[in-house]
Design a protein around this nucleic acid. Structure first.
Length: 419
DNA sequence: TCTGGGGTCCTAGGACCC
DNA sequence: TCTGGGGTCCTAGGACCC
């Protein structure tokens, strides 16, 4: 059987661990630039606050103290995620980390699944302070449905097991087709137009018809709902195909200097991410966008990909390429709101061919980059950067409601006082 | 005034080759 | 001027996920 552990309202729960006064209150976490809602507590959901709701529409409630709002603090969430995953791994062995707040794992089916799952959930929650739910079923898609039910119905007490065909069919009947993992808004619209309303209706369609309408992806979902496992994640085996760093700016800008400053920071971040994974890339893409929510302004969406002469994770090479691409796409007369850098054609560094003309180049690069990474780790991101990178700050993201880095910054460590 | 960031997979269609 | 089948590779766009 397959288990899925999923943290409840993860970002909100991370904020609550260090601020117990937030328990029972409506809490939301906002995206970069405090733009829109990306996480909600159950109380906030009950108020009808939608995922992705623009923050300015909630301003009155936030200012009045009716909702507690926080800027997203991904350093904190990443660290809490590592703790949750570490605890789960200690309890069940191999896990497949599917996202920052959820992981699949195998669980033997000849044991008391309900009891064991509840024990896992309790121990992870007690060790980390993060409430979690567990779904168990024969396939990943059904485990998702079980997990959803475990969260939605308090009677399940955080755990739902689908281990008989009877339970499977009942779960499918209670699940709207659009709530199935792999069926998004477009396809669920299409399905409803065909009077396919529930996961049960979908699973009863002829397989060949699903294949024709939705291609192989839809067919896999169909199989999984019918208890035939066919989605394999195996995320550890395959290295990422591309790595991207992009941001919306705090304010729009038409200045090449501002864009170059942003693109430099994004390129350095991509190179850092490559090194952290022990990978190298052979292509760099820079893209820029104007503000699509301002139809009154001239719009521009542009990107340019630069092939590298050899695979690398050297910040200097990637930064040069990214800035070169920026010069090709930059047009004055537009107010840009967002930019990003993508590195692609990624392979493990171990597979790189040595340079024919300078067999020292890799060693030199590794020494320098290793030193930069070590200093940035010690003194904080951006402490050391290349002199060639422009330094305007205008593009910086705005985070006015940021919580402290309780777990990753000694200056922010929580202080316990006693009288 | 104010609307996130980082990924994956699949398909269709064009360019090119024999 | 007419006549063909079968491949590969690449890209853009669509759909999905958290």
């Amino acid at each position: 059987m397959i288990g899925l552990l999923d943290c409840n309202n993860f970002y909100v729960s991370c904020e609550r661990v260090f601020r117990p006064a937030l328990n029972g209150r409506p809490v939301v976490v906002l995206s970069n630039n405090d733009g829109c809602v990306i996480a909600r507590s159950n109380e906030a959901k009950a108020m009808g606050i939608e995922m992705g709701a623009p923050a300015f529409r909630l301003k009155k409630l936030i200012d009045a103290g009716a909702i507690a709002a926080y800027s997203s603090n991904f350093r904190l969430y990443g660290d809490m995620s590592r703790r949750v995953m570490g605890m789960l791994r200690a309890l069940v062995g191999d896990i497949e980390v599917y996202s920052i707040d959820e992981a699949f794992f195998q669980i033997p089916d000849d044991i008391d699944l309900q009891g064991r799952a509840r024990e896992i959930a309790d121990r992870v929650s007690r060790a980390t302070g993060i409430p979690v739910s567990i779904g168990i079923a024969p396939t990943r898609t059904l485990a998702k449905i079980a997990n959803h039910a475990a969260k939605k119905f308090p009677a399940y007490k955080k755990v739902c097991v689908i281990d008989t065909d009877d339970k499977r069919l009942r779960a499918l009947q209670l699940t709207a087709v659009g709530d199935v993992w792999g069926i998004g808004r477009r396809i669920s619209d299409k399905m409803r137009a065909m009077n396919v309303q529930t996961a049960f209706d979908f699973a009863r369609l002829p397989r060949a018809r699903v294949r024709r309408l939705l291609t192989v992806t839809g067919e896999k979902t169909w199989c999984e709902l019918n208890a035939i496992p066919c989605i394999d994640l195996d995320s550890d085996a395959a290295p990422r195909r591309q790595i991207c760093t992009s941001r919306s700016f705090g304010e729009m800008t038409n200045s090449l200097d501002d864009l170059a400053a942003a693109v430099s920071a994004f390129a350095a971040s991509c190179a850092e991410k490559l090194r952290a994974r022990g990978c190298v890339a052979a292509a760099v893409t820079t893209f820029v966008l104007t503000n699509r929510f301002r139809p009154d302004l001239p719009q521009c969406v542009a990107g340019e990909t630069v092939p590298l002469s050899r695979h690398t994770n050297d910040t200097r090479v990637i930064l040069d390429a990214a800035l070169g691409a920026l010069l090709k796409i930059y047009r004055p007369g537009f107010l840009f709101k967002k930019a990003g850098v993508v590195v692609s054609e990624i392979i493990p560094a171990a597979q790189v061919q040595p340079d024919l003309f300078d067999d020292n180049i890799d060693a030199k690069s590794q020494n320098l980059m290793g030193a930069i990474d070590a200093l940035n780790k010690k003194y904080g991101r951006g402490a050391v950067r290349l002199g060639s990178a422009p330094r305007t700050e205008k593009w910086r993201t705005v985070r006015n409601m940021l919580s402290p880095n309780y777990t990753t910054d000694l200056d922010d460590i929580i202080v316990v006082k006693s009288d």
